[in-house]
Amino acid sequence: MAIVRASGLSKTYRVADKQPGLRGTVRHFLRRRTRDVAAVKGVSFSIEPGEVVGFLGPNGAGKTTTLKMLTGLIHPSGGQLEVAGHTPWRRQRTFLECITLVMGQKQQLIWDLPPLDSLRVNAAVYGIPDAIANRRIQELAEMLELGEELTRPVRKLSLGQRMKAELLAALLHEPQVLFLDEPTLGLDVNAQARVRQFLADYNQRTGATVLLTSHYMADITALCPRVLLIHEGALFYDGSLVGLSEQLAPWRQVRLELAHPLPADAFAGYGEIESLEGSEVRLLIPREQLTASVNRLLANHEVVDLEVSDPPIEELIGRLFRQGSLEAFR
């Protein structure tokens, strides 16, 4: 029985366009021209309890809009949606008590007070008796390696400490479904790794379902056996991370070590040059031209070593995010 089920989910926003300059501003003020933008178009997927799913896509692909529909913050314009047996946008108490949303860019902790004060507010709001709340705080604080940070004003915490405290606040009510929108945003590498480890442990320990968006591929590769890739509002891929790399990359990476360094234009016509350092060069060559290109390379240049591999998934997704379009792969 799936815990998250979306079918034909869509959302259309009405946005106002404004031309630059004074004239544009006046026109914008007097007669606002609006148009409809389809942010999410007929997305369908389902998630089983306990799964950790990565939600990928370039900026503006519709990830956050989908998350907001899943958490009941906004009404879908069409389609069916069920999370933990509830219709999210009704925001029934029983629904809100079994989900949580962590947003890397927004914070719920009270800025001027220690995290413990915010946690006490949350305990009251979620109707958790103090004894139970204290026990959970202790457990989670231990997992997150939070100690005296909990009694220091939030404004005096580092970004990493703050994010960990945010996670604690978001998990105090032991939600079954975790929606995480860029939870490691802006953290340094160590803090990212710690948050990642915590999420893996938490999923193991509680069996909670996790849907995670992140721009850091390390988060996705470390946590998510399954990924959903959304592009221009439509679901482009749903499956394993390995399968995604095959679908995204119709080419292979060829690493050459040459006897003598050569200029970049020596490799024109073989494929795209990914890097060129001294006598080492990496090329991306379309799969169907691989044999022919490698033969030509071996014939035309003095090659000391040659290695053919699949490009790493991080690079593929990174490329997708940078270029903001699947065209990058065609």
């Binding site: 958490t71 009941g72 913050l73 108490r93 029983t94 989900i99 949303l101 927004k106 719920q108 709001v125």
Partner: peptide, 13 residues
């Protein structure tokens, strides 16, 4: 304006 209404709406209250 800042979108923090999200947190209020997500609370079971």
């Amino acid at each position: 304006q800042e979108g923090t209404l999200d947190f209020v709406l997500l609370k079971p209250i």
